[in-house]
Every structure is written in C-alpha cells, then in structure tokens.
Design a protein around this nucleic acid. Structure first.
Lengths: 216, 216
DNA sequence: TAATCATTACACCGACCAGTGCAATATGGT
DNA sequence: ACCATATTGCACTGGTCGGTGTAATGATTA
C-alpha cells in the first residue's frame, strides 16, 4: 500500500507520519480509554503500520504521555490567545469577561479529542508516573488557570476590580464558569445546549463581579 | 475451601456473598478502571468463586452498574446526614458552613473506593447507557448537590442570607468548596494536606458569604 | 434421610492485545 | 546507480480476559 507519490517533505525532521500517529492516538485514547485503546487501532486510523508506531515510540505508555503533553500545550496556548484577545484591553468589563468565558467554554468543544483524553488522564491518574503527571498539570490545566491572574491584577490596577489576591480571584472565576460547565458536560462528552452553557457563564461572571467589582 | 462453619444467616435473601462481591467490585473497578478490572480479581478479593459472581450478576457490565448505583446512594445518604447535622440549626453561620464544608470534603476520603469509582464512571461516561447514567447522576452527585438548596432557603428565611435563587446559591457553594477540592485531588486520588483542604474550604465559604450574606 | 439450592473448582473457548523479528519495499539524498 | 533510512506486511509469542459447562461439595429445610 501507499504506492502513491507523497510529493513533498517526508524525510525531514520526522513529522508527517509522527503527526498522523499522535493525532490518531489522541483520538483513540480519548474515545476508548487507555486500556481499551489498541495500538493496532491507532495504527489503522493513522494510516500507518503498527511497526512504525514502535519505531517512533518506545511503547504504548510513552505514546500516551507524549500525546497528553502535546495536547496540554496546544490548549494552554489557545487559552493564552483568548486571554490576550478579550482581557488585554477592557472595554466593558462584564461584556469582556462574558465573551472570554464563552470562548473559553467553546474551546473545550474545539479540542474534543484532547478533552476526551483529559477524562482518560484523570481516570489513569494513579497509574501515571508522578513526575509526568506533575508536568502535565503544570503545562496544562494549572497553566491555563494561572494565566488569568495577571490579567485580573492589571484590571484591578486600573481600578475596575478590587482584589487582594489575584490568584484566588482567578481560581474563583474559573470555578464559577469553566469548571461548572466542564463538570456538567464531563469536559464536553455530553451535550449541553449552547444557551444553557451561556447562562452558566453569565451567572458565573455576575457572581464573580459581585465578589470583586469595584464599588464605583 | 470455606469448610468453616458460617454459623448464622447464609441462605436467606442473598446477602453475605453478594455484599462481598459488590464490596470487592467497587474496590477493583475503582482501583483498576473498568477495562482493566478482571472478574477473576474481583472474585479473588471477594473470597468467592468467579462462577458465583455470574450467578448473581448477568455480566461484568451489570455488576459495574449495580456497584455504581449502590455507592451513589450511600454517599448521598451520608451527605444528607451532614446537612442535617450542620445546617439544620444555625449557631454561627460561617462556622457552621465551614464545618459542613470540611466534613463534606472529608466524606470523599471516607468513601475512597466509591470516589475512585466515580473517576472510572466519568471516564466511561460515553459507554454507559444514557438511562443508567441519568439515574446515577440523579441519585448521586445531582442529589447531593441539590439537597443543599432547601437548607440555604431556610437560612435565608431566617434573615441570615439574601438569595433570590437557592439552587444557584447551592451550586455556588458547592463549586467554591467541594468541587474545588475534588478538582485538585482528583476525588481524593492524590493526597492534599488537610491544612490546605481546610484553607480551600474556608476561602470558599468566605467567598460564598460575600456573595450571599445578609448585610444585617 | 432426602431433596433443594448456593457455591465451588476447574477446565475450556474464542477473542484480543502489546510487542518483536524479519524480509521486502519504498524513498530521498548523493 | 548507490546507499542509508523509513516504512511495511505479516507471522508469531506469551499473556489476559469474559464467559460457560460441569460435576462435586456443602449446607439448609422438611
């Protein structure tokens, strides 16, 4: 098979095949869970031979860890962009926070394979080497969560919020919006009408503002 | 094996063996996850033959569902007792809410097998029949969460809280306390120093009170 | 004692799976 | 054309697992 041409860029670095493998692995690990996911299935869906997978990765576990870390980085980067886009310059605080919250929630739906994988990671949490888990949390959810704090700090410095501890406020914002939605949908695994998601976010933002909005 | 006496209560109803099976199944499903958990292991740890398991349950899946539902009921009942104990009669609102929150968090540690199973359920969420999942949510987490609302309503009626929507307030309380802790520890799978858990609960309660305490 | 029924040990089937070895093939650089 | 390397197909091993069939054992009840 694969008698075709493959005109460009094949033998450089190691992309193409490797990317196909990680893409497929992300999908299969997320869909089936770690134990059920078979390397044969991953190979099939990647359009690659099983042997090639073992040429790129030592074993199933290392493949899983690689995919988990890559996905975490991608999402964290996307969240970083959302922060810049919505909270760099504040026009209307409530509107901007709501817009950020909505896009933050939508981001879960835009990386469905990754967030299915997150559920798998959480299920495997006791079997993942502690160091790996720590790194994943750091580059993933922890990083996404913490990045919000400095934006809130700056908004507070401009007099729009009153907060003693920006990290705590960021935590509260996250709990009242994204965490609430994720908890109800299991990271997007179950459908939630967009209107309800929006209602939750608006509720959360309003609660957040009652907690931290400057009185004037 | 089992040549012993077993003096009392064996052939009535069907407990004893069945309870041993569900206890063991809860532990193994929680520890290993659904796919990895082997019926042989469950039988071994239950001190029961594999055949006996299949005499009580149709298959692995039904055993899993049974265990999931039983555990959810137990925890919901325990949470109900905590509510009665701490929020029936309010002495000092903040103290009582903190005490409730702390015990609520501690309850996760007191049912470690069940909450390990919860992680497994969440991972299997797309493979669990929708009706079963709905029932589980209803008797389990949803019920535990919703039970808080009427207590808050009553506290508000006594003038200690100001809230338009008791359900929303209950949701906020849960998010700011138990959900925060559960998210950080993966339902108790990872250790969290008790002091830190307490700090989170106190933080959460104080945020909740800033949201809803009567201005007096 | 006899009959009933839960339980047991044990062997077994069919299926799946992680990982390997190897020889053939394809590909890109020179 | 030649070489180094990536990839492929495929068979194979050793192991696990869900579920079943069966004959024997033990206890309970009448």
């Amino acid at each position: 098979m694969t008698t075709g041409a493959m005109t460009v860029s094949s033998r450089r670095g190691m992309p193409e095949k490797r990317r196909a493998i990680t893409r497929s692995a992300r999908a299969v690990f997320g869909r089936e869970g770690y134990a059920r996911a078979s390397v044969d299935t991953i190979a099939l869906e990647a359009g690659v031979s099983k042997r090639t997978i073992y040429n790129h990765f030592a074993d199933k576990e290392q493949l899983f860890q690689t995919v988990a870390l890559e996905g975490a980085e991608q999402v964290t980067e996307a969240v970083g962009e959302l922060l810049e886009r919505h909270l760099r310059k504040i026009v209307d605080l409530r509107e901007d926070l709501i817009a950020f919250g909505l896009e933050r929630v939508a981001a879960v739906a835009e990386f469905p394979d990754h967030f299915a994988l997150v559920r798998t990671i959480e299920a495997e949490v006791t079997r993942i080497p502690p160091i790996v888990l720590e790194v994943w949390k750091d580059v993933g959810p922890l990083s996404s969560h913490k990045k919000l704090a400095p934006y809130l700090r700056e908004i507070a410095d401009r007099g729009l919020l009153v907060l003693d501890d920006a990290e705590r406020a960021a935590n509260h914002f996250n709990l009242l919006t994204i965490t609430d939605v994720n908890q109800r949908t299991f990271y997007g695994a179950l459908p939630l009408p967009e209107a309800e998601a929006a209602e939750i976010v608006v509720d959360g933002v309003d609660a957040f503002l009652r907690l931290y909005r400057a009185q004037d």
